[in-house]
Design a protein around this nucleic acid. Sequence first.
DNA 1: TAGATTGTTAATCGATTAACAATC
DNA 2: TAGATTGTTAATCGATTAACAATC
Lengths: 210, 210
Amino acid sequence: MVANRNSIIRLSRYKNALNRLQSLGFVKVFSDNLADAVGCTASQVRKDFSLFGISGNKKGGYQIDNLLEKLQYILGKDKIQKVIIVGAGNIASALMKYKGFEKEGIRLTAAFDIDPSKFKKNNEIPILPLEELKTVVKENQIRIAIIAVPDVAAQQVADLLFEAGIKGILNFAPTRIKSPDDCVVNYVNLEHELENLIYFVNVLDKTKVK
Amino acid sequence: MVANRNSIIRLSRYKNALNRLQSLGFVKVFSDNLADAVGCTASQVRKDFSLFGISGNKKGGYQIDNLLEKLQYILGKDKIQKVIIVGAGNIASALMKYKGFEKEGIRLTAAFDIDPSKFKKNNEIPILPLEELKTVVKENQIRIAIIAVPDVAAQQVADLLFEAGIKGILNFAPTRIKSPDDCVVNYVNLEHELENLIYFVNVLDKTKVK
DNA sequence: TAGATTGTTAATCGATTAACAATC
DNA sequence: TAGATTGTTAATCGATTAACAATC
């Protein structure tokens, strides 16, 4: 087996849980505790760790500080990760106001738009014309971007991003994006998440009478 | 096999693709076209449909209007789905401004907060005191809620929601929520999505030299 | 009819879980 | 030592894909 989306998402969850445990003063942790914390099995936890060559003590579990360090390294916390946003709408504005990214080493560097009325060159996170995207990406060697533009513009924006050297995209637009082989696209579709919820709530509702 | 998260998410994607095709004037579609549109195999498409008893014509593919109707019904589009938000912060404000939900039959009915300075009883989507949550949920028979409160408050809010009769939660807080058996919780964690992207971009980067 | 597409079954693939030897 | 926990292998489970008979 090789690392896949789910296993990496679990690593992020372990990391979060470990941060919490650490701030509560805990020093070591067992696979069982972590499983509880993130909602999987202890087997899963040990399997995930073994996949990344992370080992604990046969009886003493895992040292939290040591484990955290390794997870953080795997997840790229050894350096500041710069990210740009394309589309300065509602989502972008929520993301830019959110204070939590910075303490996880994720820095929103700039946002871009085509609408001049949105430009704010002097903001802490500046909102710049789309024309400047390529320069900013290259100068800062940015590899990650968030697409938060309307549906119809998404592919076009993505192509621009790939051309500028972006390798990973988090796409909020409800459009599948065609991407080069050496690039990754992850999707966030809140409408689909809600539809999913609606479906399962309906099903559970009907199952009730059994 | 029985419907699982992935198959339902795919139904949402088929629906989106069909809407697009319909607005372009297409009348029928083959499993192959849909597979292309959403990025899966034609087998997958036919399998998904057969799971829900949706059938096409042995040679003529699927009638778009007919197919859309069935998918929409499965996804709860036969009635307006009312949703509330708890926590009137950045995410809530982005969601409330977003115009796309309404045309998919998803109505954000109200938001709730504990901070009186946030209350806006006369907004189109009112922001109300948390104390009123239970009443609003019961009066409107709302079953779906979005949690957009800080980490530490999430479980507490969730318990309140379950007590009020909420059956499905979309949770933006980075906390696993303990829920009754007859309730569903879906998670959106943008930080984890970005960490995921960072990991795979790094891996692809290292693989390049092969 | 010939060709193309569905619907479904069987095969494959991959991820999760169980089990247990190693060992602290 | 005895008991508990890891690390890993094998078994299971479930989802995806391939294949193909049915048929329009």
